[in-house]
Amino acid sequence: MTNQHATQANKDLQRYEKPIDSTVKLRTIWWSSAPDTDLIQIASKKSALVFLHGTADGADVWDPVVRSVADKLPLPAIAFDFPGHGGSEGFDDGIYTTQRMIEAVESALIKMRINYPILVGHSLGGSVSANLMERGKITPSLCILVDPSMRDTANVDDNIRAHIKVLANGGASLADLIQAVEARMALADPEALKTVLPSMSAATQSVRPNGVPNSINLAQGIEQVLSDTTCNDLIDLLPRISNRKIALIRGQFSAVLSQKDANLALARTQNRMSLTVIERAGHAIPFEQPEKLGEAVAKAILTYRS
Rank of each mutant, 00 (worst) to 15 (best):
Y96R: 05
S22G: 12
S206D: 11
H5Q: 15
S274T: 15
G87M: 04
I144G: 03
L302R: 08
P286R: 13
L39P: 06
H163E: 12
P286C: 05
E223R: 14
R184K: 14
Q8C: 04
G87Q: 11
R100I: 00
G90R: 08
L75H: 09
S242Y: 01
E103Q: 11
E291Y: 08
T2F: 10
K260Q: 14
G221A: 06
S129H: 06
A262E: 01
D228K: 12
S206H: 06
A186W: 02
D261T: 01
R250A: 07
V128Q: 01
A247I: 03
R208W: 13
L293H: 00
M1K: 07
S258L: 05
T28N: 08
P209G: 03
T23M: 03
V120A: 10
L264C: 09
I235W: 09
S68M: 00
R280H: 15
S32P: 10
S107L: 03
S47I: 07
K46Y: 07
T7L: 06
V69Y: 01
Q205W: 05
C231L: 13
P74F: 06
G170I: 09
H5D: 06
R208N: 15
K165E: 15
S32M: 07
D12R: 06
I285R: 01
S88W: 10
S274L: 10
A56L: 06
N3A: 08
D92Q: 10
R151H: 11
L293E: 04
S258Y: 03
V225C: 11
S242N: 03
A267M: 09
E223L: 10
S149I: 05
A265K: 02
S258T: 11
T37A: 13
A284T: 00
I216L: 13
V105R: 05
S127T: 12
R208M: 09
L39T: 02
S258V: 04
A186M: 14
K245W: 00
